[in-house]
């Protein structure tokens, strides 16, 4: 075990080409999907939290259901849609990074929506009453609400990224864990462990844990700064 960890650290320090490729694919998939999830999820979350309209409660229940959707179910759904017998087979997206990103967006956007909705539903009524009492326009009211949401947006992004980077079920099904093409950190750990090659798996595990620690440190620091 000790020698495997030592070899893993040496692998990281030697900038192994395969390791770098896995990191690059992972970064591409996770950064892109979390940014898209943010772009879609933040406005929808604010809308669901700040406004009252018919069907809102149905949408909230639907979003909570999607938040708990098992990644393999999402993977299965996309596999069926884009495989040789699926309706979108002509797009030839199965086993590509693009489809991995789309599946990740579907998986993590409900998390962003849920976080934003919870925060805004709590903040918006009091803020709105104050802003309307001052005679502010709707645009100014939303501007102030966005300003209040900064920390929530930031933490929603980091949580979405953390979920994306730790996810394995959907990306392995739609990406196929193809070496040098669609293999991300989690699928690579599984692949190399199955082969009995622990060194690369441990190296990737160490990187994942370090990233998780970094995300938490950044969240704690930003929480202090943005809550001022």
């Amino acid at each position: 075990m000790g020698s495997s960890v030592q070899k893993a650290i040496e692998l990281i320090l030697s900038a192994d080409p395969e390791l770098l490729n896995i990191l690059s694919v992972t970064a591409r998939v996770c950064l892109t999907s979390s940014v898209f999830a943010l772009l879609i999820g933040v406005p929808l979350g604010i809308l669901l939290g700040a406004e009252r309209f018919p069907g809102r409660k149905v949408l909230l229940v639907l979003n909570r259901t999607l938040t708990g959707m098992p990644p393999v179910v999402c993977g299965l759904l996309f596999y069926m849609l884009f495989s040789g017998v699926g309706p979108f087979r002509h797009l030839h997206l199965l086993f590509t990074v693009k489809l991995m990103i789309i599946a990740q967006v579907v998986l993590i956007t409900p998390i962003v929506i849920g976080l934003m909705e919870t925060f805004v539903a709590d903040t918006s009524p009091v803020l709105r009453e104050t802003a309307r009492g001052l005679g502010f326009s709707r645009a100014k009211e939303y501007g102030l609400l966005m300003n209040e949401c900064l920390y929530s947006v930031f933490s929603a992004y980091l949580l979405a990224f953390a979920r994306a980077i730790a996810e394995v079920g959907a990306v392995s099904m739609v990406g196929g864990a193809i070496a040098w093409k669609t293999n991300v950190m989690t699928t690579a750990i599984m692949m190399y462990t199955n082969r009995g090659s622990f060194t690369l798996g441990i190296a990737l595990g160490l990187i994942l844990l370090t990233l998780s620690l970094l995300v938490n440190i950044i969240l704690s620091v930003m929480q202090g700064r943005l809550s001022r």
Binding site: L127, T130, G133, L134, G135, L144, N147, E148, R228
Partner: peptide, 24 residues
Amino acid sequence: ISAGYLPQKSFPFRMSVEKNILSN
């Protein structure tokens, strides 16, 4: 008419005291 309303619980916007006042 122009009416100003101060609710029972007013919301402090996430900015300095001076900027809060200058927001109006």
